[in-house]
Design a protein around this nucleic acid. Structure first.
Lengths: 245, 245
DNA sequence: GTGATTTCTGTGCGAGTTCTGAGCCAGTCG
DNA sequence: CGACTGGCTCAGAACTCGCACAGAAATCAC
């Protein structure tokens, strides 16, 4: 894996310049593994915990800038963990992971506080974007710039979901938007279809790599149509987004 | 997920530039939690207390600019707390939380003093707005601008509850008003149905996300009718409010 | 209380979106 | 040159999402 800091995606850091810290809490080792990689990939420092007890302890020692927290834990549940964690870290923002069909009563209300939640299964891109957004709001981010990604004459506003190329507004569907966001976070970097599939699609998506090609083709029609192309195919490797020459 | 400090909602602060302080008093930890998050999210500093004793002590040490105070406390009741608190902080405004069916006689006289009350269950949007209004009246707000939100040719007065589009007055019901207020506090930002539900509806509302769609449709009929639309649907993401072009 | 207003639930339709599968084209390599 | 691999696109199937409508329930005003 390689370093994520790009010109487009402002690097968050703590006041002392050290990397941002994220605590991931889930009892499925696979998932903390997966999330850990995605978050480290952003240049963040990641600690994992598998139980509520561990989580509370880790929160105290590790002093994270954000927490990704599964609602279902073997010992006590997410809300309880939250409460205990807040005792030491009153302001740390939390991204909850919750089952799709779980009673959202308990989670809803939380997002109101500035916390947020994502339903399983999720795409890594989604989680990363949410964690980033959480920190933008609450953490001491040195580079607290606005949420607009820029590559060449292409801009994407993560708040308003507006996408423009050369001053012209472009309408994208939800999936197209996430794909483009991922590409724009990684300009001039070749992203393999597997990577894209992992990041943009839900982690348990069983489909074909074909969809990536399909959606790349949709994007091309919308953002490259008629203009100098920005999306390039690296045969056998993947795709790159870079400013048109 | 949303960022609350917008151009539309002026940021309050103390004379020395430090953040405004709010004390939240309720014996239900869930509730102080929830309120605390919502208020912190406004950029305010929050302290919580679970009993009347704690509240009085906290008021003395913390010197809050506003207090959110439950009428029902395990030790002594809200009025008593108020009396003792006022001994040290004679001018601090208080927002009372009271049960719906509680005798309102005792509370009603309070609003005259510049204080205010809200009945449980409430929506977070409501509480935040009221606290803001209280401070506007009594606190030294650096940016003590008026309480009118403006987006394009749409204006909403948080005090008088007047809403106008292009000079024309529009009558909204209570829920419609709160929904529009939330949208106008977050112009050009996509708000998901879950977020809207969390902020605008009462915290114990167990209903469907369906209502959000319904009320968006009501609002559209009233503020977008015939005109250039300001409320836009971002399919799969949520809704955005922005000035008509 | 009674009627008016407001809020909410449930359902069904239509449009927009996502995905599958197949066929075609273009490099690549024997 | 021919076979193969990887990538692109089309068409349509399957599905999801948002919206409207109608009526039930709750609330408010008198």
């Amino acid at each position: 894996m390689n370093n994520q800091s790009t010109s487009a995606a402002p690097r968050l850091q703590r006041l002392d310049g050290s990397p941002v810290r994220v605590l991931v809490v889930d009892d499925e080792a696979n998932l903390t593994e997966l999330l850990g990689m995605a978050l480290r990939y952003e240049g963040w420092e990641v600690r994992a915990a598998g139980t509520g007890m561990e989580a509370v302890r880790a929160a105290r020692e590790f002093d994270p800038d954000a927490v990704v927290l599964d609602m279902m834990l073997p010992d006590f549940d997410g809300m309880e963990v939250l409460r205990r964690m807040r005792a030491d870290n009153p302001n740390v923002p939390v991204l909850f992971l919750t089952a799709k069909d779980a009673v959202e009563d308990r989670v809803s209300g939380l997002t109101a506080g500035g916390d947020d939640y994502v339903t399983k299964p999720f795409s890594l891109e989604e989680v990363v974007a949410r964690v980033r957004a959480l920190m933008r709001r609450t953490t001491v981010a040195v580079n607290a710039s606005d949420s607009v990604l820029v590559v060449g004459d292409l801009t994407l506003d993560e708040d308003s979901h507006e996408v423009m190329r050369g001053g012209e507004e472009i309408h994208l569907t939800a999936t197209e938007f996430e794909l483009l966001r991922y590409l724009m976070r990684n300009p001039r970097r070749v992203l393999s279809k597997a990577q894209i599939l992992d990041r943009v699609w839900n982690y348990d998506f069983g489909g074909q790599a074909n969809v990536v090609e399909l959606y790349i083709s949709y994007l091309r029609k919308k953002i490259d149509a008629g203009r100098d192309p920005m999306i390039h195919t690296m045969r056998g490797a993947g795709y790159v987004l870079k400013p048109a020459v």
